[in-house]
Simulated scan of single mutants.
Amino acid sequence: MPAICARTARWTAGLLLGLSAVMGCGGGEAAGRVRMAPPELPLIREGVVELPDGYAERVGISVVSAHYEDVTPVVHVTGVLEFDAQRLAAVGSRIAGRVADVAVIEGSKVEVGQVLGTLVSAELGTAQADIAAMEARLIAARRDVERKQSLLAEGITSQRELDMAVSAAAIAEAQLRAARQRVAALAGAPGKHKLGTNALTSPIAGDVVEVQVSRGQAVVPSHTAFMIADRSSLWVRLAVFEGELLHVQPGDPVELTPTLRPDQAFAGVVEFVAVALDPMTRSAEVRVVVDNSSGMLRAGQAVHANIRPASAQRRAVVVPRQAVIQIEGAPIVFVASGERTFEMRKVTLGVGDFERVEVKAGLQLDERVAVSGVFALKGELYR
Rank of each mutant, 00 (worst) to 15 (best):
A3C: 01
R10H: 05
A13Y: 10
A13I: 09
L16N: 08
L16H: 03
L17R: 05
L19V: 14
S20Y: 09
A21I: 11
M23Y: 14
G26C: 10
G26T: 12
E29P: 00
E29N: 03
A30C: 05
R33S: 10
V34R: 14
P39C: 12
E40D: 12
P42G: 04
E50Y: 15
L51D: 03
P52W: 11
Y55T: 02
I61N: 04
S62H: 04
V63A: 12
A66K: 14
H67V: 06
Y68E: 07
V71M: 11
P73Q: 06
V75R: 03
H76D: 12
H76L: 15
V77G: 01
T78S: 15
V80C: 02
L81M: 03
F83G: 15
Q86S: 11
Q86Y: 09
A90M: 03
V91T: 07
V91H: 04
I95K: 02
G97F: 00
V102K: 07
K109F: 04
K109D: 09
E123P: 00
D130R: 08
A132E: 12
E135P: 08
E135I: 14
A136C: 08
I139W: 01
D144I: 00
E146N: 14
R147L: 15
L151Y: 06
L151W: 08
L151N: 01
L152T: 03
G155N: 06
R160T: 12
S167R: 15
A170C: 01
I171L: 14
I171Y: 07
E173R: 10
L176W: 03
L176D: 03
R180F: 01
R182K: 13
A185V: 02
A185S: 13
G191T: 15
K192W: 00
T197P: 00
T197Q: 15
P203V: 03
I204E: 05
I204Q: 04
A205Y: 05
V208G: 09
V208D: 06
V209R: 12
G216Q: 13
A225I: 06
M227T: 14
M227F: 10
A229D: 12
R231W: 00
S233G: 13
V236T: 05
L238R: 06
E244P: 00
E244G: 00
E244V: 00
E244T: 01
V248R: 13
V248D: 02
P253G: 08
P253K: 10
P262N: 07
P262Q: 07
Q264I: 07
A265M: 13
V273R: 07
A274T: 03
V275M: 09
A276N: 09
M280K: 13
R282C: 01
S283V: 06
A284F: 04
R287A: 02
R287W: 10
V288I: 05
S294M: 02
I307A: 09
S311A: 14
A316I: 06
A316V: 08
R321D: 07
A323K: 06
F334R: 05
A336Q: 15
T341I: 08
F342R: 03
K346W: 04
G352M: 07
G352Q: 05
F354M: 15
F354G: 11
V357A: 11
G362N: 11
G362Q: 06
R368A: 12
R368G: 02
V374K: 12
F375V: 11
L377G: 13
E380L: 06
L381N: 08
